[in-house]
Computed example of a mutant assay.
Amino acid sequence: MNNTDSMSISLTAALSAVGVPAANHDFIRQFTTAVGIADYHYVDQTGKPYVVATRVDGGLPLHIYYGATNGFHSEEEVIRMAGSAVDRRKSGSRKGTWCVEHPVNQSRPPGPRSKDVRREGAFCACGMQRSVTGECPSCD
Score class of each variant (00 low, 15 high):
L62R: 08
S84D: 14
F72V: 08
G47H: 11
I9H: 03
K95P: 05
L60R: 04
V52C: 02
D26A: 06
Y65Q: 07
D44Y: 09
H41T: 12
N70Q: 13
V51R: 03
S91F: 05
T54N: 03
Q45R: 11
V43K: 08
R88P: 04
Q106R: 15
M81P: 01
V56C: 00
Q45V: 10
D87K: 14
H73N: 11
T46P: 01
L15C: 08
G58D: 01
R55F: 07
L15K: 09
S16W: 05
L62M: 09
T32F: 09
V100G: 09
T33F: 10
V78F: 00
T12D: 10
G96C: 10
R29A: 14
Y50P: 05
D26E: 14
G58C: 00
K90R: 12
R89K: 14
V52N: 04
G19V: 11
V43I: 12
I37C: 02
A34N: 15
P21I: 07
R94P: 00
E77N: 01
S91W: 03
P49V: 12
L15R: 04
K90H: 08
A13M: 00
D57R: 06
T46Y: 02
T54H: 08
V78L: 07
R88V: 12
T69S: 15
G96N: 11
G83V: 02
A34P: 01
G83T: 02
Q45W: 06
A13N: 08
F27I: 02
V51W: 00
L11E: 02
T12R: 11
Y42H: 14
G59N: 11
D5H: 15
V35Q: 12
A13K: 10
N24L: 03
N70S: 13
W98E: 03
D39L: 02
L11S: 03
L11H: 00
R89P: 01
H63E: 10
K90Q: 13
N70I: 03
Y42D: 08
V18R: 02
G92Q: 10
G36L: 11
K48I: 06
H73K: 15
M7A: 13
R55H: 05
S10W: 03
C99W: 07
H25K: 07
A53L: 05
Q30Y: 01
S10R: 05
K95S: 14
R80W: 01
R94Y: 08
Q45M: 02
G92T: 11
C99A: 11
L11R: 10
A17W: 12
T32W: 01
T12I: 04
N24V: 10
